[in-house]
Measured scan of single mutants.
Amino acid sequence: MGKSNSKLKPEVVEELTRKTYFTEKEVQQWYKGFIKDCPSGQLDAAGFQKIYKQFFPFGDPTKFATFVFNVFDENKDGRIEFSEFIQALSVTSRGTLDEKLRWAFKLYDLDNDGYITRNEMLDIVDAIYQMVGNTVELPEEENTPEKRVDRIFAMMDKNADGKLTLQEFQEGSKADPSIVQALSLYDGLV
């Protein structure tokens, strides 16, 4: 993909415009910024974590950033290329609610087996709590990752089998306004 070129080839721009919710001009602008920050044309896990640390200076986002990195890194080569970056950004910032929920499901399904187990969710929720640090005051019933996961599973795990399917996750998330709101945070920002 033209590693350190400051412009993408027209056919690449066209393809990314088809695969995302961005215009050709927006794709070019994002590429310019991506190459400025990642001259090699790729972003590794350490660089990704560094970006998260800028956004969450009062907590430790390392663990959460690693989980997000793994979802962005579609081809699992340990690096995020621009096409992976822009497609994930498109879903998280401008995707439909169902697209965002499928993306979030992939984030929580750490072993990619098609289910979110209690332990997988606990890993992610714990990482989120570490990331936000003491900057967020949580209600008593959610002031630990374990309590939050218990509440989520009580609401979403309809067949009580200890794991969530994509359908259970989507339906449960849509029924909880706070989850829908959290997924909409990026709307309109890009």
Rank of each mutant, 00 (worst) to 15 (best):
L189G: 15
N112Y: 09
E74S: 13
K163L: 01
K36Y: 11
A160C: 05
F55K: 13
I152W: 00
G133P: 01
I179G: 05
G162W: 12
D44R: 14
T62L: 03
E171D: 05
P57T: 02
A46M: 10
Y52P: 10
E11P: 15
T165A: 10
T62I: 06
P10G: 10
K36L: 08
Y115R: 02
A160P: 05
D123F: 04
T17V: 03
L110T: 00
V91F: 10
L189S: 10
T92S: 10
F22M: 02
L8V: 02
V132T: 00
S184I: 02
E140L: 10
V91R: 14
M155W: 02
G188I: 08
K36E: 09
E140N: 02
E137F: 11
E24A: 12
R94M: 14
L89H: 14
V71H: 14
N159S: 05
Q28I: 13
V27W: 15
E141M: 07
K63D: 10
K19T: 09
Y21E: 07
L89Q: 05
V136R: 00
V71F: 05
M121R: 02
F58Y: 00
S4I: 05
Q54A: 13
L189Q: 12
D157L: 15
F67L: 13
P39G: 12
R102G: 04
V149K: 05
D123E: 11
Q130S: 15
L122S: 03
S184L: 02
L185V: 04
N134S: 10
G33D: 07
I116F: 06
F169I: 10
P57D: 00
F153R: 02
E142C: 11
Y186D: 00
G162E: 08
R18H: 09
P57I: 12
G78A: 02
A65V: 15
L101M: 00
L89I: 11
L43P: 12
E15M: 02
L138C: 02
P10Y: 14
L107P: 02
D73F: 08
D98Q: 08
I51F: 09
D109I: 09
G2L: 01
D126N: 15
N119M: 01
E84S: 05
R151S: 14
A127R: 08
V71T: 13
E99R: 09
A127P: 15
N159P: 14
A88D: 13
G59F: 10
E146R: 13
L43F: 14
E84Y: 15
F82Q: 12
F34W: 08
L122V: 04
K53N: 04
Y129S: 07
D157G: 11
D73C: 07
E11V: 15
E74G: 13
V136T: 13
D111H: 04
T23S: 02
V190I: 15
D150I: 11
I51T: 11
K100E: 09
R148W: 04
Q28M: 05
V149D: 00
F56I: 00
K147R: 10
